[in-house]
């Protein structure tokens, strides 16, 4: 793998995470528990789609064959997506979305804090802007974990079950591949081992305060960095890419 290929791959992963996360959050539109929360979830969806646009555009520039951000979002197949599995899981109930948001926002908080130190100035630019948004997402998820964890018996149970179901997708967030190794050496990509330690610590603190037990699971899922996804991604893409695929010669 060349350095250029590694960077392209790395940017796709960052862009795909944001794209898929934005897509899933947008599914909440008109379905949130009350109107104010509908606006909050849509705001976070918009943050993510904006971030996806920046990373996919840069990925297209690095690849250098003229693909745009839209080409990369709408014209790649399931095996060419590199988002982590947890991002593509369906939205579930509100507790499931909040648990997912907490796992992801704490991960991204440390990931993007590191990325603001990258030697690639385009990455640091996007990361600095994104970090502000991510901090807010983390605040939102943390507050809701407290409300649900300590709210009613039902909300506590739903939140606990959500974390139990999501836990097997957490280790994959910190897996490092060949492309990471190439870029970490040059100070472009980040060392996820550091992120992993900080993530574990912060999640443990938050869950403890929310009276949620840290789940124990026998098996951890993996695969996204090789383009091996859950069955959910195919459906998501079929929906997202429908117009672009059905009318390949049209521009909108």
């Amino acid at each position: 793998m060349t350095k250029k290929e590694a960077l392209f791959n790395y940017l796709l992963q960052l862009g795909d995470n944001a794209l898929i996360q934005g897509h899933r959050l947008s599914e909440w539109c008109s379905k949130a528990p009350f109107l104010e929360e509908d606006l909050a979830l849509t705001n976070m969806a918009l943050d993510n789609i904006g971030r996806a646009q920046s990373f996919l555009k840069y990925a297209g520039d690095i690849e250098g064959i003229g693909r745009t951000d839209d080409d990369l979002a709408y014209k790649r197949g399931e095996r060419q997506f590199y988002n982590h599995l947890i991002y593509e899981l369906p939205i579930g109930d509100f507790a499931y979305t909040i648990a997912k948001q907490l796992i992801i926002s704490v991960f991204e908080y440390f990931q993007y804090t590191e990325l603001t130190q990258s030697k690639d100035s385009t990455i640091t630019g996007i990361a600095s802007k994104s970090l502000k948004e991510i901090k807010y997402h983390k605040l939102h998820a943390t507050d809701w974990c407290m409300r649900l964890g300590k709210g009613t018996v039902e909300s506590h149970q739903r939140l606990q079950e959500a974390f139990n179901a999501l836990w097997m997708y957490t280790v994959e967030l910190f897996e490092m591949y060949e492309s990471d190794a190439i870029l970490v050496k040059d100070g472009i990509a980040i060392d996820l081992n550091i992120v992993k330690m900080k993530w574990k610590e912060m999640i443990a603190t938050i869950l403890k305060e929310a009276t949620i037990d840290i789940p124990t699971v026998d098996y951890m899922q993996t695969g996204s960095r090789r383009g091996i996804h859950t069955e959910h991604l195919g459906h998501l893409l079929a929906e997202m890419q429908y117009l672009q695929r059905a009318y390949p010669d049209a521009t909108w």
Binding site: F34, L35, E36, E37, L39, A40, N43, L139, H140, D143, R147
Partner: peptide, 19 residues
């Protein structure tokens, strides 16, 4: 805005009135 606690009220106000 509607909210159950002060932090939620602040966040809902942010999402509703400062977009």
């Amino acid at each position: 805005v509607h909210a159950s606690d002060s932090q939620m009220a602040l966040q809902n106000a942010r999402d509703t009135y400062t977009r």
